[in-house]
Write a protein that binds this DNA or RNA. Sequence first.
DNA 1: CAATCTGTTTACAAAATGTTTACAGGCGCT
DNA 2: AGCGCCTGTAAACATTTTGTAAACAGATTG
Lengths: 224, 224
Amino acid sequence: MHTILVIDDDENLRDTIIVLLEQEGFRTLAAADGNVGLEKALTAKPSLILVDLRLPGKSGVDVCKALRSARDSTPIIVLSAAGDEIDKVLLLEIGADDYVVKPFGTRELLARIRAVLRRVSPEAHQVLSFADTQVDLQRRVVSRKGAELKLTPAEYNLLTFFLQNPDRPLTRDMILNSVWGYESFPNTRTVDAHVVRLRQKLEPEPDCPRHFLTVHGVGYRFLP
Amino acid sequence: MHTILVIDDDENLRDTIIVLLEQEGFRTLAAADGNVGLEKALTAKPSLILVDLRLPGKSGVDVCKALRSARDSTPIIVLSAAGDEIDKVLLLEIGADDYVVKPFGTRELLARIRAVLRRVSPEAHQVLSFADTQVDLQRRVVSRKGAELKLTPAEYNLLTFFLQNPDRPLTRDMILNSVWGYESFPNTRTVDAHVVRLRQKLEPEPDCPRHFLTVHGVGYRFLP
DNA sequence: CAATCTGTTTACAAAATGTTTACAGGCGCT
DNA sequence: AGCGCCTGTAAACATTTTGTAAACAGATTG
């Protein structure tokens, strides 16, 4: 999970951003001025830094320069007020990765953050595999013997749930709650139907399952 | 496609640059010291060389001199640490084409690389292609089997977004954010309509898409 | 070995999702 | 203003997915 450091002296804006980021599942750190910000940046090793250009104490530019000359390459997105003369070349030279002009929309900010994070920490393709099957969780692609398989959303969700809970008997209720969620109340037979579909697509011999096992009287168990 | 050789003894920086370049579609080669670098430069014929000034063994200056005296005219961009006295005259004399001072931003580096490559091989626009279609990102021109295709701005933007994110399911929201921007809030159906238009203009068989694939329940996926 | 319980499979209709077409407003151009 | 092209939306249509029921199969128990 990513931690994002927000350095801005405007308490109101800072809190707004913090709340937004936490809603989106980021961990956050905050600093009200450049010195504190720089210290947190160096000690807490955030994944990304949002820094205001104008700050009491050290300016945003100073923070960037200090970080980069400490050979720290944490990605930085600069926030700049509408009035500020934005010298793009300067920003790039001090090692900023992107900038956003205030006032900015939440979607814009999030999109820029995600874009920078994606660019910096590329494709740590987490690929789970069992037998001759690979599941690429990032790309949402399942392949067997090199050939891509088409899974429906429900099938894919069920499969990832099995993959995350291998080797353990799972009751139909546990599966329903985790895969379908607490809001929907489908019949427990639904689980069976989908297990059948998974077996047909993923088991070498669908009639004699070797991975999606039945635990009589209990539920199912996935064996990698 | 261009191959870029990176000669730098700082493993961290080297890897960062390599990853960046590969994300941008360059092939890469790496070397940690001047001797290895020189050898790779001569044997692998890269399109461009990034070389640190200070290197163990042969310095960056030595590498340049050696290359040029071997009548090799591969363009060279010199990387220099912030503290280094940069003697521009020296750089020009040894045949460097540009230099970048550390710490530099990723965008700056890419811009310089593209500028040098463009200067050296002016014909070589950055052209992405898939199947029998070429997309010239500089000229914003799309052609198929030599004939120019007329795309509207929205279609072109959508196409380039797909080209830059191949092989990965993209949700309608991601597409909206990236292509339409953060300010506008069009209906997600809008994406569908434009995908249809792209398919009609670019797919050999628009009813049986082979490149702009639907991922049911998720969004779309572009397959080169 | 029947009776009973549990799991499997098939088929199907409802729901969700995606495609296509048509169209009206917007924008630039003459 | 008039024209034409681009675009977003809506509505009709098509397809895929999915939950359920019912028939079937296998396991368990007394």
